[in-house]
Design a protein around this nucleic acid. Sequence first.
DNA 1: CCAGATTTTACAATAGCCTA
DNA 2: TAGGCTATTGTAAAATCTGG
Length: 496
Amino acid sequence: MRMPTFAELDSDQRGIYTESPANRAVLVTGPPGTGKTVVAFHRALRLSKGGKPVTLLMFNNVLSKYADSVDIEHDITICNLHKWVDHWFRHAFKKRAPHKTRFDINWQAIGKTIRETTDISILHRLCWGHLIIDEGQDFPVSMYEAFMDLIDHPLLEEASRPTLTVFADENQTITENNSTLQEIRQTLDVGVRNKRYWRLFKNYRNTREISEFSTFYQLTGRSAAKAPDRGGMKPQVIMLPDHAAVAEHITNFVINNGQVEVGVLSFGKKGDVKNIYSELNKAKEEKKSKHTVQMYVNGPAKESIHHDAKYLKFGTPPSITVLHNKSSKGLEFDAVFIVNMHRDSRAFDASAQELIKDMYVVSSRARNTLFFDIVCFGDSLPQITRLLPSPESRLCGYTANTEWKSELREKLKHVPWSETEEMADQIRADTLADEILSLGDDAPLLLSSLIESSKKHMILKHGIKEYTSGLDKQNIVRLIKEIGCHRVEKDLMTTA
DNA sequence: CCAGATTTTACAATAGCCTA
DNA sequence: TAGGCTATTGTAAAATCTGG
């Protein structure tokens, strides 16, 4: 992990580091790229100087490994949540933590156990010192409730009370097993005034061009980060004849750019990841280059080092790290190459929504440079091309290095770009409608204010009553589409 | 022979017991 | 008391099937 010094942190990031209290709970939120992991690490460093143990919980093993690649000496324990919970609970109660199902920890039961515990030595064994959680939105509210039960336990003396700092992404996904920011705020009892609730706004990770590009795939746009100052090259889409050409492109980039950390993020299946990895090794041999080529794919750890995240090395350029797109959450690289897009079957049915979400994740992994290497068999553009931004959008450049490169412009004209844009718009409107409906009693109020704010708009032709009284989802979607998603997002921000 | 659908297989991670 | 062992089971990848 690239670790900026204290002086390099921005003022809003520094505030969290210096001003937030070192007891009870603190919550930090922000969209992707705002430096949550970096601030989390700085806070961990600071708290570790106080003598109590500090634990940093990451979402998965690859991410833990990445966070631990920092070149600062520290005595912070970096771990994933499941492993930590097992040790924590067992250490105190001498038995494993209760589970509802196999992968679902029973936090209600844990909370109850903690509240009912009167044995002070057990309570002391539960006290974790300082706990810092990254990607906090992916954990259930009941977990936070259980943690607060310990933090505020009446039998604990002030000095031994543990603390909790949660870093959460503002891109809300609403499923059963995770929490909304609202819920986390309430549970942790944090506020802006007592400096327990902080928000990060500015994107530090990406260049302006890459940030704009990834926003194209952001289906819920209202939590987009403030655009970065740093400019760079536009993302490039490159049409190539075969996989060997892709590997050569990537290898040349590494050789020509010296000290870079390159991420190769592959769509498709495990075999596709392995395939590009072996091509990259071949290209490295041919060009007699010294850079590192490493890969992680999900698999039995004892069978191959490629299945065990602990063999990954970050922060030692020049290097190429090959990962499946699913493993790339939370990571960042100087340059990212996205490959094997044509191998993804989710091209144009309902699951294209999932593919678009993945596109958002992978494209925002790049700090400076972003390439889409697309293999074209024969002389036509693959279907998947339509999921990229159109040339008119000017979000990315298109080039070809094939026999028919002179015909690229002509071929691009026939790609049905508008289908993708319509679909994305539909998904955005759908998501917004769901969000409005989830407001419950406040929904009619917001709807009428939406209609009010777009007075001049066509919407009045349909009559206000129909929308506010009906509250039918289809009507709301129609309303949102007529007003425009962007507008509704803005209104929703100010109202909420 | 292929693309999509369906079935089979393999894996991840815990519970609960055991052991050094 | 931490770690080993194994049955267990939902999920995801791989293998197989199928109809054109």
